[in-house]
Design a protein around this nucleic acid. Sequence first.
DNA 1: AAACGGGAAGAGTTT
DNA 2: CTTCCCGTTT
Length: 768
Amino acid sequence: MELEKELNSQQLKAVLNSENSLLIFAGAGSGKTRVLTYKIAYLIKERGIDPFGILAITFTNKAASEMKKRVIDLVGRVGEYMWVSTFHSFCARLLRREISRFGYNEKFIIYDSDESLKLISRCITDTGYDLKMVSPKSVQETISTSKNKLIDHESFIKRAFDPFEKIVARIFPLYQDELHKANALDFDDLLFLTVRLLKDNPDVKEKYQNQFQYILVDEFQDTNLVQNELILLLYNGSNKIFVVGDDDQSIYSWRGAEISNIINFDKNFSNTIVIKLEQNYRSTKFILDAANELIKNNYSRSKKKLWTQSHAGELISKFRAQNEQEEAKFVAKKIRDIIAGKNKKSFKDFAIFYRTNAQSRAIEEVFIRENIPYRIFGGLKFYDRKEIKDMLAYLKLMSNPKDIISLTRVVNVPARGIGNTTISHIEKFSQNNGITFCEAFYDIEKINTVSPSTRQKIRDFISILDNLRDYLDNHTIEETIEELWEKTSYIKELAIENTIESLNRIDNLKEFLTVIKEFEESHNSIEENAKLSLHDFLQEISLVSEVDNYDEDADTVTLMTLHNAKGLEFPIVFIVGLEEGIFPHVRSITGGYDDVEEERRLCYVGITRAKEKVFLTSSILHYIYGDQRERLISRFIGEIPDELFIDENKATSLLYSSEETGNYTVNKKSVFQFSKNHPERYSKQESRSVDMFSTKSKDSKKSDNSGFKKEKDFLNFKVGDLVEHKLWGNGEILRAKKSVDDLELDVVFKSVGLKKILASVAPIKKIQ
DNA sequence: AAACGGGAAGAGTTT
DNA sequence: CTTCCCGTTT
């Protein structure tokens, strides 16, 4: 290990310093993974730290296993004893050992958001509310936020003030109770209970404080209150803390991430120093310039500037399409062109990022038609598919018979004559007798409101489960699944259905089997603790994210949301849908200023993923709820100086002139032409508040003699007019809205993009 | 009990 | 345009 050769001076400092609590400000692409890896290797090899005493928290499981692998490459197999995982996996692992203190069984299962939502819905109904009046989603959100602030249901009740909170105050305790009865935890409980465990049990706390001599946390800017609390509990002042973060890449405030965790770092830990990594090794200069220029527009951020020694590289590109299809086609065409070029690029060098999962569809459709191989991350995840969830429900039920959500999910899947009537009879019986639904279900003989024939069906179902449980004792999970298919006729029913959809489901199930097989194999070989139990398998499945399954060897284009893109890098990056209302998202625009700043950081994250080339695309028309609406170009495009852009609308010679778009040709005037053909589209705009902005001063009211607007003729501006602005040059009016005695205009300028201005004060004139 | 159809609501990002 | 829920029919 030749640290001096491998690291720059700041990186080296971060690796070698073992005296202080360290806060590393690591800009995008500044080699923080490298620093983390070398740091750990250095600790083990040079400082003689026991790997078992090292805790490293990463943002994804994939990052965790990668880091582990790299460390093992450097230090050998002793590295396997490190604790490297996400917060959630760490907590699950800890609770596995200690949860009995809370009256849970160590075989607890983890409910994903869907399952938790179902349980919440049950609780709402049980409390006597109507699901239409009390939205399960809002309740779930409120409970989740509460747990993430370390407020349990008892404290919540005390501080519930508004009517909605009062309602949640009734549901929250019930929900916790139901979770407990089902021996289940939701995602937030994992963190919440771990914190409580350490708080309430000094002996446990001390045990882990002593074990973890070094605590390293990656992506610290995205930690929330509970997570910070957890770290603080593990810290006793004599062990060491090392965190890495970048405030410009903080994109999870909606999930409770607290930037104050960074700000208060020096108060929370002793003897702190800050090290900044500002040299970027990933991107070419133009890309970095664009990212820097963009992020400069954020008010709240610490001062820093990424720099690079890299060559200028290629300018970034922008393209404004007519609609989503054309936008997707542009992406496809560019990919094809670049691959055909001499830079020897293949599909896996490309990534396409978007703001919302739904946006992947347009791209997908075009890629299928044009035969471009791709993989989508997020959206409808593999494990979210009905058939897979059914399998997991069966498995969960085998592992934990108290799992009411899984039981109700599969009790009649495939249909076996145990329908809603029966379920509500059991429900009623359990309520009347003060027992849980599951208890009533397994004791079906006592419920004589259920007909004998139905009771027989339930007995059959229960014995299927029992038999599968026995079967698992001397078979692998894979074999047990096959047995499950056999005994429930699950596959058979799908085959009989014989639709494209059902056959597709069979394929997915076979893939599921492969996943399980690989899982079992890999775990048996790597980990010594021999036989992987079903329970371990389920825990891991609950906590994997889609990105964890990313396989960099497959030669396909990658499609994912910008949030998922964090921590990854690609030679060529497309960000699509750069439109006001999409990115930045409407909900951020109508929210506070902070929200738009977070969107901007998200865009920054996207751009800085690219090593060689960035494309920012948008389209004029966009479908929402099956309704086509026009969209203004995103402000983020306007915030990046024009000198850094290649305008593909000009540069590309008419890619898409023909079929769908009629006479439409792509050139620099595309925006203008469109609105002239469809002026009526702009008239149905509702009133929107005008984000005031500051050209109104000086020379506005007094007309100077340059011809820029005077007196009352400003009322003559209308949608579609081409105008010249004193500072920004030519633009086109996209919207005009009368206010009391003025005209609010949305104008797209060639130089700066979209601006909102008041006709009476802005220095603009009409161009003939 | 299951299948079908009409109507309403809905998609912001995730462990 | 989708998905989900509910009421109706078989």
